[in-house]
Structure formats: structure tokens, C-alpha cells
Write a protein that binds this DNA or RNA. Structure first.
Lengths: 136, 136
DNA sequence: ATGACTGCAAAATATTTGCATATTC
DNA sequence: GAATATGCAAATATTTTGCAGTCAT
């Protein structure tokens, strides 16, 4: 696995302590698809002075550089995904978790649809996840 | 085409003047996928006393009753769609319009994906629409 | 008259911006 | 030391809520 420092270096992002910690968090909790809030609350233990602004700034920068993806599913807040490979998500209406799913859209980026030039493909599903289903 | 009154009656929604006008707007400007703001600003000519609250209340009610869909693509505001048949959207990065597209996801509602029970299927694409492409 | 609908004002939420201070190379 | 990053406070944008007044049956 690449070091955090290398990940930043590859994208020409200066590796400050805050940035390293934020990147570490999104990679470690890749399955959480965390919000700014989650990251901020966790990092406050390590870096008591950290601010929401820095978390926002940093994730915006990461997103622009293609180091993370911002996903808009809940309609309320941005969820961040360290996995930037095109893939789809499933939002569980019961537990609120966002899960990665295995199916792939047959319509890929770079193609055209109805003569429109496609740059990004987004797909997500809502329902009840298998864990919540078992509990019923 | 069904009357506005019938559309409301079928869903057991009391047909007030505001509700009729809001429904009329989203049906007439179905291709705009309008925001609350757009609807409010337009209806102010007809109903000077109308409030954002009523537009929000009404669209929330319509959405719960399945009369419209709320779509979350831009990340900033809810866009409303009178077409509640499952279909996909294209957001143009240049003109900001949301267009309906003809392709259909092969993964339908009611099915399972990775053992998760699917209730809603959402797909959208971002890029440059054909109109904006021609202008380049 | 009862219950539902409307709309004002205020609150809540999420995100962005301006700017002074601090940090990094 | 120059350039960049951080973080506080305030602003912005969107949506929701509480409540008092209004409308319709």
C-alpha cells in the first residue's frame, strides 16, 4: 500500500499534518464513506485545534485532485469516498450506511449518451441492506 | 391528459389553489426539473401571497404521495420531476440544465443486488450536453 | 365549528468566504 | 522569507419548524 506521503506527493499536494491525518482517516474508514463532520469529530482527538474549515478545504482540494470522490446520495451532506474507481453505491434506508456494490453500469465515462458527452457516471440505489433485512 | 384536479384526487390530496398551481407548474415545465425557488418566483405573479414554506410543504407532500420525484444531483438544491417513471438524468456542467436521457438501467426496482433489497434506482451522468458542445 | 392549509418569522443545517495568524519549505 | 495553509468568525444557501391566522366543508 502506498504511503500517505506518496499519495499526496503524486498529486502535488503539500503534506501537512492535517492533510495527512484527513487522508489517513478516509482511507482507513473507506467503507464508512465519511462526512466532514465524522472526520472533524474524530481528528479533534489528535488535533484539538483543527477546524471544520480545514476539513472542508482539504477535502475539496483532494476531490479536485482526484484523490477522493464526493458523493451526494443522502441529499443532506457530502459523503467522501477514498475509492475513486467508478463504482456504485447502495444507501440503506434503515441503518443509513452507504455500501459499495458489485454491479457496474454498462455506460462508461468518455462515451456519449443521446449525443451528450459524458464525463461522470453516477449510480446509486436505495433500499434495505442485507444486514437490516435479516433483523426484521 | 388528466386534469390537475384528478391527479390530486387520485392521491387523496385536497385541491387547494396553491397546490393546483404548483402541480400545474411542475407538469408544464417538466423538462426544467424546477427548484422550489423557480416555482416560487413564477407563482408569485399569480399568487402574490404565496410563501416558500407552502411550496416546500406542497412538494414534500407530492413527493410522499408519489406525484413528483425529488432529484438530488447538483448537491445544492432539490430539483423536482413530474415524471415519476424510473429514468436517468444528465446534468450539463456548462449550462446547468438537467436533461432526461433515453438509456435505462438494467437493474430494476424490487430486485436484489448483493442480497440488498432495492427500492429505488438512481442514475445520472455529468458532462457537456449536445447543445453546449455545438457552441464550442 | 372543526380540522386542514397557509405563510411569516425564526431555527437548523451544511457549506463557503474573508482575513489574520501560523506553518512549511 | 515568501508562499501557502490553517482556523476563527461571519456570511450564505437551503430546508425545516413553531405558531398564529385563514380557509373550506
Amino acid at each position: 500500500m502506498k504511503t500517505l506521503n506518496n499519495l499526496l506527493r503524486e498529486k502535488a499536494i503539500k503534506p501537512t499534518y492535517q492533510r495527512l491525518k484527513i487522508l489517513e482517516y478516509v482511507r482507513k474508514y473507506i467503507k464508512k464513506h465519511p462526512t466532514v463532520e465524522m472526520i472533524y469529530e474524530e481528528l479533534r482527538y489528535d488535533i484539538p485545534t483543527i477546524s471544520m474549515t480545514t476539513v472542508y478545504n482539504t477535502l475539496k482540494l483532494f476531490s479536485e485532485k482526484g484523490l477522493v470522490d464526493g458523493i451526494f446520495i443522502t441529499g443532506t451532506e457530502i459523503r467522501f469516498d477514498f475509492n475513486t474507481e467508478p463504482h456504485h453505491h447502495f444507501l440503506c434506508r434503515k441503518c443509513g450506511r452507504i455500501l459499495d456494490i458489485s454491479i457496474r453500469c454498462p455506460f462508461a465515462e468518455g462515451k456519449e449518451i443521446d449525443e451528450h458527452q459524458v464525463q461522470e457516471v453516477h449510480g446509486y440505489f436505495k433500499g434495505i441492506c442485507k444486514t437490516c433485512n435479516k433483523r426484521l
